[in-house]
Design a protein around this nucleic acid. Structure first.
Lengths: 89, 89
DNA sequence: TCTTGTGCTACTAAAAAAGTAGCACTATGT
DNA sequence: ACATAGTGCTACTTTTTTAGTAGCACAAGA
């Protein structure tokens, strides 16, 4: 599962999540990810670009069509996670 | 997203994936995960148990009902990833 | 009782991430 | 023209995480 190897890396899922409904600049993305270090962020962005999930546009980083598709696959998961979080308390 | 923090850790997604259709012993799970070190495996299993995604049964580690639900949420993703992997070549 | 398999813990070495500074470039304003 | 602010990074050191390996304690079977 190459996809899991990619998404299993720290911050990978989070980055996609933060880009879910708007593009963000490198620095904005960094802040959104609790101040992740630029070296790690850059490394992840590189991998996510190679995977064609994100792309650098004129107004920052954004999900590609493929990235949006992936996001939709995760859509149910995000909803589900709220139920899950509630059930743990 | 507490769920992403959990699943974003290395091996977490992989462990759930390896347990997708049968329970595995600690050592079998270790082998299935390319020989991940026992300390990390133990650490992940602990977290996944606390999250109630896996449980230690008489014949090894297995997904709980909640774990299976999560797996179903991922079901589409696994299929999708094959298409994705093919499109990258 | 000896082996085999089990779930681990403990330890050191290697890799990854955090944290911080700062460079090169592009606006934008004065 | 010149300073200012914002951008996407790179480079470096410290800290945390993971890898890698050894081995213990327990249980079941021969």
């Amino acid at each position: 599962m190459a996809l899991l190897d990619l998404l299993g890396q720290r911050w990978a899922l989070r980055i996609l999540w933060e880009l879910r409904d708007s593009s963000l600049t490198f620095r904005a993305l960094q802040e959104a990810c609790d101040g992740v270090s630029p070296s790690v962020l850059n490394s992840r962005l590189k991998a996510l670009k190679e995977a064609q999930f994100v792309d650098a546009t004129s107004d920052g980083y954004a999900l590609t069509a493929l990235g949006k598709e992936l996001q939709e696959e995760f859509g149910g998961l995000y909803q589900w996670s709220e139920k899950w979080a509630a059930s743990l308390t």
